[in-house]
């Protein structure tokens, strides 16, 4: 399945940060949705700003335009404000990208659990993300830190409890 680029991707001004406030807002919104959908397509969870600049998202070889590092940081900062991104280091060179926020993942998992009548049962984290049962689910292959965060979000809602097992962590749904 190939990734479908939005029309803006071939529009040169898209790669220049617009000085006009209204225009810039629309431009950033377009960038945010492009970055998230691309990461979702490629199942990316962490990004490095410098590496990202060379990736096809921010570098359109066809029209010979690429987004500057400063502009990428502006886009990432915008994503952070929306809750889709977290910086790993202080210098803001690496970040965690969450194309679904933990709460969204949590509710997806909870839906699957309740659909299969497995409320009140205990799962290991590995079972949830890599088990055979979840193979067709979207959260299959979710990185552990992301999974843990989603479950923590559920725990805060009182729908799950994270428990420590001998060989790692487990979770019980209510």
């Amino acid at each position: 399945m190939s990734f479908e680029w939005p029309w803006q991707y071939n529009f040169p001004p898209f790669f220049t940060l617009q000085p006009n406030v209204d225009t810039r807002q629309k431009q950033l919104a377009a960038w945010c949705s492009l970055a998230l959908s691309y990461c979702r397509h490629r199942k990316l969870y962490t990004l490095d700003v410098l590496e990202a600049q060379e990736s096809p998202v921010f570098n359109n070889k066809k029209i010979e335009r690429k987004l500057s590092v400063e502009a990428i940081q502006v886009v990432f900062e915008e994503l952070r404000k929306k809750g889709n991104l977290e910086w790993i280091d202080k210098n803001k060179t690496r970040c965690l990208i969450m194309w679904r926020r933990p709460e969204e993942w949590g509710s997806l998992i909870y839906q699957w659990v309740s659909k299969n009548g497995m409320i009140n049962s205990v799962f290991t984290l590995y079972e949830l993300s890599n088990g055979d049962d979840t193979e067709n689910e979207e959260f299959h292959g979710l990185e552990e830190w992301m999974l843990l965060r989603s479950l923590q979000a559920l725990q805060a809602e009182g729908k799950a409890e994270i428990i420590t097992l001998d060989d790692g962590k487990g979770v019980k749904f209510f």
Binding site: F15, Q18, T23, K26, Q27, R65
Partner: peptide, 23 residues
């Protein structure tokens, strides 16, 4: 025209170009 939000810019090595604001 850019200030009024009718145009947008493309600032590249080739210079500053203005495009209709499609955003």
């Amino acid at each position: 025209a850019e200030k009024m939000g009718h145009l947008c810019r493309d600032d590249s090595v080739e210079g500053l170009r203005f495009y209709p604001n499609l955003f």
